[in-house]
Nucleic acid binder design. Structure first.
Lengths: 344, 344
DNA sequence: ATGAAAGCGCTAACAG
DNA sequence: CTGTTAGCGCTTTCAT
């Protein structure tokens, strides 16, 4: 049942129905009686506004797009959940797409979403930003915020972990526990998080008076296989590290596999700090000491930023364009100390 | 750039632009020259059809709703990914919502989605079907398919695991491995999958000549905590089982925790078969023998069924309503035999 | 081979 | 306090 039909039934105009059901009865000072009649009839006949009609008229659909590299990754599924929840609170729906960690697919999907008439987009980029992706992003006709990674120099609002600080956190803990030879299992070195985490680690080592030779580096990507290869390289060193921090959430699988293959025990033979909570992290033998990201907050902030962007667009549309500041929110990670680090 | 503007630029009508860009040039025998001009201009000016305008006109938006209990659960995130991929192949977008395993939230979200003008819905129900949910489902104004669980007697197309067969598969393997005292860690007993899996297990036991006393039952829900409580109950029995099958994907955590607490070893002291692949299942000490669901196929079939429903609606709209058959597709599970089952 | 006109359902602007 | 009018962008008759 649509508004015009309902209006005819009641002998009022569609406008009135729209005002009542759109919550504008007060503003237009519709009589209480009319309001009641419309409400009752609407309830009885299950009349609800058609979002398409309203959307077309308003130029907005109440839907924002969310593009992630892999919903199957616990980090992104938690993020998606947090984002959906917060958007729902604000009456917005989410269209989800998954780029399967593939930059080309990502470009296509982003272009498609940018084309649909969404009210905004939240993007968790796959990795390095291709020129084509950058062009898409620059030309974006809608509010956009980037999560998890910051795309330097693009001036797009972003929210991500303070990766450098998180890296420091991890090694500081290791150093404090007496470790002096530390392995770092890196992820995708093109990615901002990996670079930042690594930077934080190097700085923390330096501040503790440990030279570069004390930091053993391996790993070339975020996958399990790459984690395994990197771990092998680390443990094959003439004098292997006594502790390893894995910058990759999935790569830790590879490390664990290698450790097991060699019959090593954690933390007796090797201490481990992992990045990113996994569903089983707390239930391993032993439970894994982990740098956890404040995912809920990340989602909340992303939505906030998106809505602010939207608001400022409407509000300050014609104002002098000088104030466009690059907003990057960096969230603090937390070290969940469990049992995979041995105090030397 | 919208169609009318583009049309004005080119000195043609919006109708022509629509026909060319809508792929109907042939049907309307637009001249090749015009087609070329329109295409070129559209590409240059980045003109694309506004889905809202088109949707309003056509009465369809090219979007289907997906409501799951918890995207964070690996099963549902994999399912969501599969569904999204298949829908994308067909040019459809997906709106995602997460009911957080809460029946009330589920009702609200379902009602909201049913109200939006989507082209269809795929629902993975939380659990038991409340009268209100049932009413919503019955009155659904749009094509709907249910996944993972079948709602008996509602006549809604569903696709799910052949849970009874999967249950048999699990215990058959255990029996074949020499186990004669088998524990069953149940999930939510109100849920169809749990009931069916359990039925399959009982049948398989019976067929192997094992009486009811050989089957030890515990567990009251799908959560980790409930899994733990159930596992405790099982292992506290005077004569505990030599093998346990966990019907709950998350509950297995609880079982594993209990086993560790007691210093038991798998599979030496206790054999384990788990339902539902988890990211770490293959990487545990030992790797977990698991009944895996064909999630990709499940997603694909759900989408197929949805689209068929949609098609038949349009096609046979006015036909005698007698042919409404309940379509329930049951998919075969597969036993991934790893190392958590000991041959006695 | 193309266009004009109508209308999908809604709401903002402009009357009263 | 309420209604009329117009138009969001598109596609589908119907008419050349």
């Amino acid at each position: 049942m649509n508004f015009s039909e309902l209006a005819r039934h009641l002998g009022v105009s569609a406008t009135t129905v729209s005002r009542v059901l759109g919550g504008k009865a007060e503003a237009y000072r519709i009589s209480e009686e009319t309001v009641a009649r419309v409400r009752a009839a609407a309830a009885r006949l299950e009349a609800a506004p058609d979002p398409l009609g309203a959307g077309l008229r308003r130029g907005t659909l109440g839907m924002i797009g969310l593009l992630v590299p892999d919903v199957t990754n616990p980090f992104f599924s938690s993020l998606a959940r947090a984002i959906e929840l917060e958007l729902r609170r604000r009456g917005l729906a989410v269209q989800l797409s998954d780029s399967a960690e593939d930059p080309t697919t990502e470009e296509e999907l982003l272009a498609a979403m940018l084309g649909r008439r969404l009210d905004g987009m939240i993007l968790a980029p796959v990795g390095r930003v291709s020129p084509r992706l950058e062009a898409l992003l620059r030309g974006s006709p809608m509010p956009l915020v980037v999560v998890d990674r910051v795309l330097p120099h693009l001036g797009i609002p972003s929210v991500c972990l303070d990766n450098a600080a998180a890296g420091r956190l991890a090694v500081a803990h290791l150093i404090q526990s007496g470790h002096r030879r530390i392995g770092c299992l890196r992820g995708n070195r093109d990615s901002h998080p990996d670079q930042e985490r690594f930077r934080g680690i190097r700085e923390a080592m330096g501040e503790a008076g440990l030279g570069p030779e004390a930091l053993l580096v391996a790993g070339t990507g975020y996958s399990r296989e790459e984690g395994l290869a990197g771990a092998e390289a680390l443990l094959n060193r003439a004098s292997p590290p006594t502790a390893v921090v894995s910058l990759s959430g999935q790569g830790i699988f590879g490390l664990l596999q290698t450790v097991e293959r060699r019959g090593l025990a954690i933390p007796q033979d090797l201490s481990v700090v992992a990045f990113d909570e996994q569903p089983w992290s707390a239930f391993m033998h032993p439970p894994l000491t982990t740098v956890v990201q404040p995912i809920e907050e990340m989602g909340r902030r992303a939505v906030e930023m998106l809505c602010e962007t939207e608001a400022s667009r409407e509000g300050g549309a014609g104002s002098a364009g000088g104030g466009e500041r690059e907003a990057v929110v960096r969230l603090r990670g937390k070290l969940e100390s469990r049992e995979s680090v041995r105090t030397a």
